Simulated assay, not measured.
Amino acid sequence: MSSARDLVYAELRRRLMSGAFLPGERLREEHIAAELAVSRTPVRSAIERLIDDGLVSREERRGAVVLGWLDRDINEAFELRLLLEPYAARVAANRASEAQIEALAEINASMLRAVLSDDEDHVAQVQHYNNRFHHALLAAAQSARVRSLVDSLLDMPIIIGSFYFYSRDDMLSSVEQHKQIIAALRARDPDYAESAMRLHLTATHRLFRNQRSPAEKERSA
């Protein structure tokens, strides 16, 4: 049952992230179960997880309903991150302790192991370590103001689950980009750290934008 539940969850999350469902659209358990050739039980469990993730809500008369995330919402989040996180990386190059830099390397190594894993929940593991990496870098910048501004952007439901439509090569590229950021911190090179983070976020935003469905792009215009 766990396997079916995880597979259904991953597929529904991928569709939600790509904009395949309209905002306000009902998620009908029976239709999803028939389409994915599973019983309604794993579908129901997957939908509950999506509600916990903040991607779906449950309405009294309509049941599970998709929450709306338009491209302009996503673009704004990335634009703000592109303003703030490269600065955080720049500052971290001067302020991060050796222990904080090593912690970033350990998190990234765990992310790589998750990418290469055959575990059914490896995508969830990858997104977990990626989120930890970015939060740890903010901590390493030792700026309460920047951290308070960026924390909420990192934890946006539509952003935190982006790895559900990454290929393994995409995930490996993300790990490599993290390695460049770590190398810049170790070198205590602010310019290198800033440019490495900007490149990483630009690549992430481009990948995210390319995966959004044409229908969603039309609705956001």
Rank of each mutant, 00 (worst) to 15 (best):
Asn94Ser: 13
His205Ser: 09
Ala193Ser: 01
Leu7Pro: 00
Ala46Asp: 02
Arg90Ile: 03
Val175Asn: 06
Leu153His: 01
Asp169Phe: 07
Ala136Arg: 10
Val123Lys: 02
Arg28Gly: 00
Leu84Val: 03
Ile47Val: 15
Gly161His: 04
Ala77Lys: 04
Gln211Ile: 05
Leu7Asn: 14
Ser162Ala: 13
Asp118Gly: 13
Leu55Trp: 04
Leu67Pro: 00
Glu30Gly: 10
Asp118Arg: 13
Asp169Tyr: 13
Phe21Met: 00
Tyr9Arg: 10
Ser173Gly: 10
Val38Trp: 01
Asp191Ser: 09
Asp151Trp: 10
Ala221Arg: 15
Leu27Gln: 06
Arg90Thr: 01
Ala144Glu: 12
Gln142Trp: 00
His128Thr: 15
Arg186Cys: 02
Glu48His: 12
Glu76Lys: 13
Ala196Gln: 00
Gly68His: 10
Ser2Glu: 14
Glu76Ser: 15
Leu22Tyr: 11
Glu98Phe: 07
Arg113His: 10
Glu11Pro: 03
Glu120His: 03
Arg198Pro: 00
Leu80Asp: 08
Ala114Asp: 06
His135Pro: 03
Arg15Ser: 03
Asp155Gly: 11
Glu60His: 04
Leu199Ser: 12
Ser195His: 03
Asp119Pro: 05
Ala10Lys: 07
Arg212Lys: 09
Asp53Gly: 01
Ala144His: 08
Ser174Glu: 13
Arg145Gly: 05
Arg5Asp: 10
His134Ala: 03
Ser45Cys: 08
Ala34Met: 11
Leu185Lys: 02
Val56Tyr: 03
Ala99Ser: 08
Trp69Cys: 04
His200Glu: 10
Arg186Pro: 01
Ile182Gly: 06
Asp118His: 11
Ser2Asn: 13
Asp71Met: 15
Lys217Gln: 02
Ile101Lys: 00
Thr204Gln: 09
Leu154Asp: 00
Leu154Gln: 14
Glu120Ala: 14
Asp121Val: 11
Gln125Cys: 06
Met171Phe: 01
Pro157Asn: 02
Arg212Gly: 09
Ser162Cys: 10
Met171Leu: 15
Asp151Thr: 15
Arg168Phe: 06
Val150Asn: 01
Phe165Tyr: 15
Ala33Asp: 07
Leu153Met: 04
Tyr192Trp: 11
Ala37Asn: 08
Arg209Thr: 14
Asp189Asn: 15
His122Glu: 08
Ala92Met: 05
Met111Gly: 04
Asp73Thr: 12
Ser143Gln: 04
Gly68Gln: 14
Arg49Lys: 15
Asp118Phe: 07
Leu22Phe: 11
Val115Tyr: 07
Ser18Tyr: 03
Asp71Arg: 12
Glu85Leu: 12
Ala144Phe: 08
Asp118Asn: 14
Ala139Phe: 05
Ala103Asp: 08
Ala109Val: 10
Leu22Trp: 11
Gly161Cys: 10
Leu83Val: 02
Ala103Tyr: 07
Ala89Gly: 12
Ala93Lys: 00
Ser167Cys: 09
Ala187His: 09
Tyr166Trp: 14
Leu22Ile: 07
Ala103Leu: 14
Gln180Thr: 01
Ile182Gln: 10
Leu55Thr: 03
Leu50Met: 05
His122Thr: 01
Leu116Asp: 15
Pro190Trp: 06
Glu218Cys: 06
Gln100Thr: 12
His205Val: 06
Pro86Trp: 04
Ser152Asn: 07
Asn75Met: 12
Leu22Pro: 05
Leu207Asn: 15
Ala203Met: 06
Asn94Glu: 12
